[in-house]
Simulated assay, not measured.
Amino acid sequence: MSGTNFVDYVKIFCRSGKGGPGSRHLRREKFIAKGGPDGGDGGRGGHIIIRGNRNTWTLLHLKFQRHIFAGHGESGGRQTSTGANGEDKYIEVPLGTVVKDGETGETLFEITEHNEERILVKGGRGGQGNNHFKSATNQTPRYAQPGEPETEMSAILELKVLADVGLVGFPNAGKSTLLSVVSAAKPEIANYPFTTLVPNLGIVEYRNHRSFVMADIPGIIEGAHEGKGLGLRFLRHIERNSILLFMVPADSDNIHQEYKVLFNELKQYNPELLDKQRLLAITKSDMIDDELQAEIEADLPDVPYVFISSVAQKGITELKDMIWKELEASNKE
């Protein structure tokens, strides 16, 4: 998924359909004098409906289609026939899409399941025909209800990637390399900061045909929660991960300190992220010997950890085992 094709935020303008007017028709047939009112109801205006689609990965299809209008309901007819409803408009979105009011920023709902449907803007109700207004004292009403008007609103759609494991680390911590080794994902990998410009997802195969989803989140830097670097834009994708895998290179000056900085950025952005299970992977460990590894272990934070090397395939199996153990534990809660 290239950066130009990954769209995780879009603002759209929606307008539902107006309801059709009721009919004021009076029955006129041969041999039937004063047949009375037989006007039917108008049709309902079309809804704007958000629908989840597990085969959609971004909001790219909405980037150039930001005005969405539903169809209007048709007028009622004779013989109490109801007018046709207006055409509903469906907006297909990836799972994990949060829908907000474009004016107030209030969260309206979130789409998390395939084919889940939520009405964003309701169509206007159709007006009642004059058949509804007849009575003993008013046997030939010559009036009917107009249909309800359409409703307009702007909405913000935000995608938050749904994954079991989210990779958290500074630029060039080895996140993309790990994802390319344990899954079929092919993220861009280069020896410069911020190589990853969009989240990448990969399905990691485990024992006995089991698997889990891993997300490579673009690198976080100190001050990301204030808008520095790319972190602020993509920190929201971490909110939907079950486990946060912190990744710090073995050649860092102070592994414990880097972990604290990353931890603090998540805390400043959203304190609820601290409730998620945290794991630590010390990457590029093929560059250190056993003696240096022992020194590093003596000053690590109090979280489950493993030393890995994606290039040398070191510790990858142990990492998968550790992740799967935590996933099973979280599913039992």
Rank of each mutant, 00 (worst) to 15 (best):
G174R: 01
V165F: 08
P171T: 01
G129T: 03
G105E: 09
S154R: 04
E92R: 00
K175Q: 08
V168D: 06
V121H: 07
G127Q: 07
N115L: 15
Q139R: 13
K100V: 00
S180V: 00
N130H: 08
K100L: 14
S183P: 02
V165W: 11
G102Q: 03
A155I: 13
Q128T: 00
E117D: 09
T177L: 13
G127Y: 10
L162C: 06
R118S: 12
S180L: 02
E113A: 06
G102P: 05
I111N: 09
L120Q: 07
N115R: 12
T107A: 08
P171L: 04
D88E: 14
E117W: 05
A144L: 10
P171R: 03
G126E: 14
V98N: 07
L95W: 10
A184S: 13
N130V: 07
E117S: 09
I156S: 12
I111L: 13
N131M: 09
R142M: 13
V93I: 14
L108G: 03
S154Q: 12
H114F: 00
R142G: 15
F133E: 14
G166M: 07
E152P: 01
P141M: 03
I91M: 11
T151N: 13
E158Y: 04
T97I: 02
T107G: 01
P146A: 13
S176N: 11
V98Y: 14
T107L: 04
T97A: 04
N85I: 00
E116H: 11
E113M: 07
V165N: 04
M153T: 11
H132N: 12
L167A: 09
E110M: 05
K89C: 11
T112E: 15
P146K: 12
V165S: 04
G83K: 03
K175N: 08
R142Y: 05
D88R: 02
Y143T: 13
E87I: 06
E103C: 00
D88H: 15
K100E: 13
